[in-house]
Amino acid sequence: MNEKTIAGYCVKCNDQGFMEDLNEWNEDIAKELAKEESIELTEKHWTVLKYLQDQCKEGVDITMRKVGKSGIVDIKEFYQLFPKAPLKTASKLAGIPKPVSCI
């Protein structure tokens, strides 16, 4: 396990920069991580991040299909908000683990 200082906060991160404890997350950290991805967070971004965190707390596996049916964004909009790899990028900014398979 690594520790990393983001926006002045020392947080537990894995090798790929995903936070390991959602309790350590705050909005300043999300803003700092967004800057690294060249994303400026709007109201819509925050709503998506909040949705992902809620799903994670409920123990639900996060998928593209679920986000697309969330009523917050459709998949195209999700790509516009978090370009290239939206599920991975949004998970990182939300302070939750990236989706994984069995190996």
């Binding site: 989706p99 398979s101 069995c102």
Partner: peptide, 12 residues
């Protein structure tokens, strides 16, 4: 793959 790679678990 829609995942972040062919292998997604660190040790594997």
């Amino acid at each position: 793959t829609p995942m972040s790679g062919a292998f997604t678990k660190p040790i594997a």
